[in-house]
Every structure is written in structure tokens, then in C-alpha cells.
Write a protein that binds this DNA or RNA. Sequence first.
DNA 1: TTATTATATGACTGATCGGTCATTTTTTTA
DNA 2: TAAAAAAATGACCGATCAGTCATATAATAA
Lengths: 195, 195
Amino acid sequence: MTKGEETRQFIIEKAAPIFNTKGIAATAMSDIMEATKLSKGSMYVHFENKDVLACAAVDHNMKVLGDKLMLAISKSKTAKEELFTYIDFFSNAVNPPLAGGCPLLNFGTEADDTNPVVKEKINKGCNSNQQVLASSVNKGIANGEFNPEWNAEEFAIVMFAMMEGGHLISRVSGSNDKMKVIIKTLKKIIEENTL
Amino acid sequence: MTKGEETRQFIIEKAAPIFNTKGIAATAMSDIMEATKLSKGSMYVHFENKDVLACAAVDHNMKVLGDKLMLAISKSKTAKEELFTYIDFFSNAVNPPLAGGCPLLNFGTEADDTNPVVKEKINKGCNSNQQVLASSVNKGIANGEFNPEWNAEEFAIVMFAMMEGGHLISRVSGSNDKMKVIIKTLKKIIEENTL
DNA sequence: TTATTATATGACTGATCGGTCATTTTTTTA
DNA sequence: TAAAAAAATGACCGATCAGTCATATAATAA
């Protein structure tokens, strides 16, 4: 890794949580300069403009969260464990695994009407999450853990939506109480489909 | 209504969809000036600053949406119909009842880390929605429509989260397809609890 | 070690931001 | 209808925005 690549990565890592917390529009290049202690000129050596940096930050947030999630899931032994791990991983929305909360929710709502590039990134991230869930269900069906009548893709959509909705509720209320209800409901559904 | 009150209301009505679409940070007073064809000075006769206007716009968006929703629900005859009406009212996230989509989702994610005043407004809005749902369930239980074992408050949380999560998915994907899965799932749960 | 290339700096630009205010126009009150 | 109050105007302000560039420094290659 050259010095330039190192600096570029360093900027992204410092910028990512700021964008995720304040939003793209409300984050100024001066915020990133302060966080990195780098000069303005240096920022523009590595990023053509703010939009390019914002996109890199969106990608980085999704990748960091995805890696953490997949690492946790990979430690699971059964399909049911995988689903439970996903749930537990996102169970604390007040102190979430990623500063600022879920980037899919944050950037998705900001970008949907204004930034088609970020919007599509988030769409892919949502689909990828649902894919993870659906494949866990299908794996469990294949190895005899789960009811073979269970519709994996439909459950993945429902579960993902519930987790994101629960995340919103918990963050605006500042409490995980209602997320707990969602978790209880999801785990019950999974249990009901466990043979 | 005095001229001043009329103008103030007029500004709010023009500003509300802009804030809901672009977000608070990304909306400039010049955007409102253009939409209202009013001068900058006139804006500040009626609003102390941008934040006050933004708060008024948030309130207005929630009120307009809430009024539309309650009007639709009030036409329902049974408790089950009320729940179905809620679902159908929000079924089209690509062309939603409010320009820019759900204000709870939009302002909630923008404000959760940055604007405690708006955050609390959205928290109240979320609770109010869940209250509407829970009271429909409880009404149905009371009049013998629904299974008396059904936990109204918990279902309200789950249903609200699913609708908001589905809204996010649909808006970033630009398609209502996955919202349809969520709707199907919710209606099935309601049917299962109908006597 | 030297020549070349890449990176870092910070002053600078023009545009836009939220917000103010003296003045004019309109509305309301007496 | 006349006087007082409220509302509307747009020029203006300082701050901040994203972005540029000549210059300096550091890293890399010959």
C-alpha cells in the first residue's frame, strides 16, 4: 500500500462515521478535515469532490458492518443460530454496532429522492442482507432443521423490514424496549418453523 | 384568519413537501422562497429562523398524513377493516400519500443523532401510529371480532415496524413488490386472529 | 544520491448559506 | 377615512460552503 492509498483509506475511515451520523448533506469537508487533521488540499488529492468521498464512506460503512455481521454469523453452528445471531447483532439500536446506526436506514432515507447513486448502493445492501437471511433459512430447510414449507425469501423480506423498522423506533425513542418485542416475535416465528 | 396567519400557513404548506423530500439540512430558505414566490424578509416575519420553519413543516407533514389516514380508517366498519385500511393506505411507497414518503422515516433518521426536538416529535408520531393500531385490535377483541389472546400492543409494534421497513425497501428499490409480501404477511396474521 | 513523481499545504475564489434591517406597501383599527 | 400596526421587500452582512492552485515537502525510482 503506497502512502497515498494509506491516506485515502485513513480519510475514509474517519469520514464514514461522520457521514453516517450527520448525513451526507449536513457533513462538510471541514468536518472531515478536523477529524483527520489534514489540510483541504490533501482531501482533494485523494477525492475528486465531496460526492466521491461520500460514496466511499457509504461503501465503507456497509462493508464494515457487513464484515462484522458475517464474522458473527460464521461462528454459528446451525441455521437457527445464524438467524438468532443476526437478530442479536442488531438488537441494541441505541448503542449500535456502527456509530450513527444502520447505514441502510440513514443513507436510504436521505438518498431515495435525491441521490440515485447512493440509493442503488443501499438497495443492493438491503438485498444482500435479505440474501443472507434467506440462505440461512434455505440451509436450515436443506439440513432438516426447518419446516420445508417455510418460504425463505418472504421471511427474509419480513424479518429485514421488522429489524429496520424496529431500529427506527428504538433510535427515536432512545430505548431498546420495543426492539425487544420485535426480537421476541421473530425468534418465536423461527422456533415455530424449527423441527 | 388574519393575513399574517394566512401567509404563515401558506409558507408551511409549500415548505412541508420540500423538507420531506430533500431533508432539513439540504433544504435552503431560498428553496422555500422560490416555492412560495415570497421575499426572504417575508419568510422571517413569520418564522424566527429556519429551525422553527423546519419544525412547523415536520408537524404539518405528520398532521396532513395523520388526518388522511384517520379519515380513511374512520370509514371502516369493522376492526379488521380498520387494520386493512391502514395497510392499504401505506401500500404504495413508490407513490406515497405524502410527497417524499413517510415523514417518520425521513425525519426520524435525519434527526435521531442531531435534532432532539424533531426526534421527540417523530417519537410521538410513531407512538401515535402504534396507538391507532393497538386500539383497532383492542376494539376488535372487545366486540368479538378478534382472538382475545391477541396482544394488541405487541402486534402494533411489529406491524408498524414492518410497514416502515417495507417502506424503506420499496423506496430504495423503486418497486412495491416487497411491500406486497409484507402486506400479505400482515393480512394473514390478522386473518389468523379473526374469529 | 539524484531526478522524478506523488503528496501535503493553506491562502484564495466565487457561490451560497442563514439571517438582518431600513424602507415601502398593505392591512387593520379607530 | 385617517392613523397605527402588520406584512412585504430586497439590498446587504458575515460565515461557511465546495473546490482550486501555486508552492513546499516527502516518497519513490533511477
